[in-house]
Design a protein around this nucleic acid. Structure first.
Lengths: 190, 190
DNA sequence: CTCCCATATCTAGCAGCGCTAGCAAAAGGA
DNA sequence: TCCTTTTGCTAGCGCTGCTAGATATGGGAG
């Protein structure tokens, strides 16, 4: 019976290989370059193998996105907990969010632009997503006024997300990034 | 020589037909359904005709997006100028922005998610875009503090954009929309 | 009125896409 | 050693954006 276990291990390893190849290819040449044929060639298997692991290409991208959510949450946590004082913690978390979106644009794209069917309600997926949201909330909690903390968190998140996507789309002046970030936080420190 | 003019007129009319067909098809079945073949069939011409008007499918989508920017700017202006008082004007403009994104999601998608090569610097395109930005700025001007008006406008825009895209992606609780909008504006009224 | 040429438009096809049916090969169990 | 199940492959379908080359159309000159 140990044979089944070995097979299952090899299978999971290959799944990791697929997700890793998709991420590498996307980060190197953009998501348009991630085709099932190139992916298959990269992992040295034929195309149909991909479909024995994932329902389709979207599911592979979603798997990459989930990786991204986990990393984002981890980096938010590190930034928040290693800052001195509530204001600094909030600034650090916001800065970490911006840094993540800037340095991993392709990952960010998979997380927020492409992965449409990666919602809150699903059983497994959104653990990392909600964890990231939770980090922002904890950064805001010490500064919370009398209004609902969740609402504040959502608005902060939206502000950060909007800044990053508009900047990336060339809609905002690139040089004003720090000032915008500071102005956004100004609305939450009070 | 009037023949050339008539031909040019017919040509522009057909171009309008293409853009209109693309928009209708997108609004009816989503952007994935907008293929060059279906577009050609809709306007009752063959596929290559499309390429005598636009460089490619992206350019057609960009033309639809430009239409969207013009409409958004007009609606922002109406909302802003028909409100009584600065606070109400800002709230009206923000509400109009949200209403636009909610009721014309496909158009909004073309404007902000797809049209990548629709930047600020181009000569013709962004007139409508900057006009919309200008409307938000004018809504903020009466409430401006001592910090830069452009920065405030960019942050407000980012907040609105972030709220709408996150909501549409199923990342925010749908029922909290009004509270989030109010909380966002709270950061600009003060 | 006829012919010519330029313009306008179409037919047909290329390379690539996501995805899958059906066959071949490998490997575990009797 | 043979059988059966699992595993992976080859080949192909219908679609995509886009284009080369052939064909039809229609205004201007003789």
């Amino acid at each position: 019976m140990a044979i089944r276990e070995r097979r299952e291990r090899e299978r999971q390893e290959r799944e990791r290989l697929i997700v890793g190849a998709a991420r590498e290819l996307a980060e190197a040449e953009g998501w348009d370059a991630v085709t099932t044929r190139r992916l298959a060639e990269q992992i040295e298997y034929s195309q149909p193998v991909l479909y024995s692991h994932f329902k389709g290409k979207d599911a592979i991208m979603a798997a990459v996105a989930v990786e991204g959510f986990a990393e984002l949450a981890a980096e938010l946590r590190t930034a928040r907990t290693s800052a001195a004082g509530p204001q600094a913690a909030l600034a650090a978390a916001a800065g970490a969010y911006a840094h993540f979106a800037e340095t991993r644009p392709v990952l960010y794209e998979a997380m927020f632009t492409n992965a449409v069917d990666l919602t809150f309600a699903s059983p497994e997926t959104p653990a990392a997503l909600q964890e990231g949201f939770g980090e922002l909330r904890e950064a805001l909690r010490p500064l919370a006024g009398d209004d609902d903390l969740d609402v504040r968190t959502e608005v902060l998140w939206a502000g950060l997300h909007g800044l990053m996507t508009l900047t990336r789309g060339g809609r905002l002046r690139p040089e004003g990034h720090q000032r915008r970030l500071a102005r956004l936080l100004q609305g939450f420190n009070a």
